[in-house]
Design a protein around this nucleic acid. Structure first.
Lengths: 239, 239
DNA sequence: CGATCGTTTGACAAGGGTCAAAATGCGTGG
DNA sequence: CCACGCATTTTGACCCTTGTCAAACGATCG
């Protein structure tokens, strides 16, 4: 578990990501950067929100990894998705919302509050596009679990994750951090950790990926993309 | 394929569902009922929206079933979710949205336009809660595909579907219409139609369900619920 | 230098997939 | 009212991907 060290303390990840989602007014960027100064730190393994409880406040992730998860009554776990730096947590349009999932810090994480947006403002548009992206990820997850085999699931998820990290400048062209265990990967991809392990080994043998000390890289990303017909997320006609 | 006949032509399904989601002003209800008069009919198998194309208008489903689906390059299909009477289609907060999935009419369907809502109005709240419910269904779908076996997937999906239909008065306590083929069920649940068939037979043998001419009923719904630890959707602290 | 967590390996089992064909149901037209 | 044609459901035999259980190995940290 060595992700946090690899990530910068998040100087302005939130405003970076949101202004890449849509053009923001300078006043909005300032407001976001002010909010980012109000940082709150959580240790790894801490639950931020528990499924079914009222959502108190809207927060954004500035650094570290978190996940949304559900535990079944017999102990099986499903990781519904991962939260990466720049992502919004619990931002939702209706009043009195209940948390739809538990949110768990994977590494140590830093969060900040998310300023409220005027209706129809650029900021509101950015939040809406962020939500649309999140929906896109959920749909991708459904397709992965429903119709892809183990190798395809891994490839698809890794490509998506590299894109998401790259979007906020946390992935270089050739490598990115992966601060999660194979067991978490298994719980996210609907597999067992044993099978994830074997599939990763096979992919390494085939030259599809290499990894060392929590960093992943693709010798030939194009080949991976072609293998599973990967398409990057696209949510709006503008940008 | 005999669902449509079993459903009423949708006198006021939309306003019924939305006002069950949150308290609405009489003026809002009137506006919705006016919108419902502007009906548009689509034949079964027609694509309403194609993935990646701009979303032109917001519509609501008044009667019939539709689904959101994705086709992989080699022909595999994943059904991401089903749209039932009262559901909103393509309602989204940001400008210039692109359709995240193709939407396909399963039976013949009737739709109407969805009136725009004032920010912070009761109507806006209703739309937001509808979106939250939709997110809930996607999360349930992820858990189903990731961590439930074939029988559990069927049971979980059937219970959820009965609840959704019951919410708009389309399910009596003991039976509800299921106007879809086993192959569609397979594409939704990440299985093959052969396996869906065998699993359904096993469930009938075990007295978990009975079906005849497109109607499903549960001899003992409680038993099914206990079997998979089913919890009905809950999205807001109020109601 | 144990203790602990995570990764790796092996042998075996099983849930679910594949392929192909038969049976059933159903709408249509004569 | 019957017969035909198509879609859907059902069945059988066989196989493969993935899961299970258990143990060994490796790294990291107090």
């Amino acid at each position: 578990m060595n992700g946090p060290k690899a990530m910068t303390p998040g100087m302005s990840i939130l405003s970076t990501r949101l202004s890449r989602l849509t053009q923001l007014q300078p006043a909005d960027v300032e407001m976001l950067q002010a909010a980012e100064r109000d940082q709150h730190r959580f240790p790894a393994r801490r639950e931020l929100i528990r499924e079914g409880e009222p959502v108190r406040e809207r927060r954004a992730l500035l650094s570290g990894w978190a996940c949304r998860q559900r535990i079944l009554s017999d102990g099986r776990r499903q990781i519904l998705g991962f939260l990466l730096p720049g992502d919004l947590i619990g931002v939702c349009q209706h009043s009195a919302p209940l948390a739809s999932t538990t949110i768990l810090a994977i590494t140590e994480i830093v969060t900040c509050p998310v300023p409220a947006a005027e209706p129809a403002s650029g900021l509101a548009e950015a939040y809406a596009r962020s939500a649309a992206l999140e929906e896109h990820h959920m749909l991708a997850q459904i397709t992965r679990l429903g119709r892809l085999n183990a190798c395809e699931r891994l490839a698809d998820w890794l490509l998506e994750t590299q894109d998401r990290l790259g979007f906020v400048g946390l992935s270089t062209a050739d490598q990115f951090p992966l601060p999660i265990t194979q067991e978490m990967l298994a719980d996210a991809l609907g597999l067992t950790s044993v099978h994830v392990n074997r599939t990763l080994q096979a992919m390494r043998r085939d030259g599809l990926l290499t990894s060392r000390s929590g960093m992943i890289s693709f010798p030939d990303r194009r080949r991976l993309e072609d293998m599973i017909d990967y398409k990057p997320a696209r949510v709006s006609a503008q940008g």
